[in-house]
Amino acid sequence: MSTALGRKVAAEAAGGAATQAHETPAMHLVTGGNEAALQLSVSAGQPPFAWGPALARLWHSAPLVFQYALFPLSVLLVWWYASGTELLPSNILPSPGAVFASFLDLLHGGDIAEHLFISLWRVAQGAALGLVLGLALGVALGASPAFESWIGPSFRILVQIPSIALIPLLMMVLGIDDSLKLFIMTKACVVPLALVTADGIRNIPPAYLEVARVMKLSRWTLYRRVVLPGAMPAIATGVRQGVAHVWVALVAVEVMASAEGIGYLMTWSRQIFQLDVVLVCVALIGLIGFSLDYGLRRAESRLLRWRGRE
């Protein structure tokens, strides 16, 4: 005990000496009349650094739009140049125009819309099942210490294993039909939702529960009026994460084992070297992931508006 204390004191003394050693040259700099530089860096405000004065002036005079557009435009330019001069063969790197054309083509021809619709329908099914099971599991884990003690440890091990790792095994048990996809999507949704919901319920301030007990609320009213609103922010976050995971998981399964859906369309187009279609699919997958996240975020903030700002 005493040695530990001694060590701590020694460490603190050493730390103090170190800071002092740093202070001396720095103080010297300040007193050396570096006020202009000081002024500049203070006025720069938010980000930790200002750029060098000249660069800074350039950046501040450049309209924001230019900064936003710089990187995407340069990528587009390099892409356009590389495909235009056939730096890479066009079946490896289709031109931006070709990709856009095939996007319109696929949209009109209905092929991509059809596969997309199949995928989205699957997502809806997986999310519906996952949300119900995830909420039930989360509430049980959060509200019942007994249930938590029996099931919790196994669940927390299972959580660490992404469904993607289990696909070969599941393919042998479930085949490569819809049941495989449904299982993987459901697991992908249940895991974050149940974890977050259980935490949300466990973290309801005990004072609220005490008030409820004093008021002799019935079990149903307790859940309806105290537990549900208290855990709502956590649940909303869990739903958003769960649905995002469903989408990622579905794309993974479709790329690996499927005969329809956008993931399948992508692998199939890759096999016949229609990379323009592959690129369109990548963009669409990103767009849908973004829209799901954005839409649910909006819904979340609407749902939680009553909480006000904290």
């Binding site: 790329v255 187009s269 890759r270 990548v282 997958i285 973004f290």
Partner: peptide, 10 residues
């Protein structure tokens, strides 16, 4: 935003 395995065909 792109689901990670979607990069593989590309």
């Amino acid at each position: 935003q792109v689901a990670i395995l979607a990069w593989i065909p590309l």
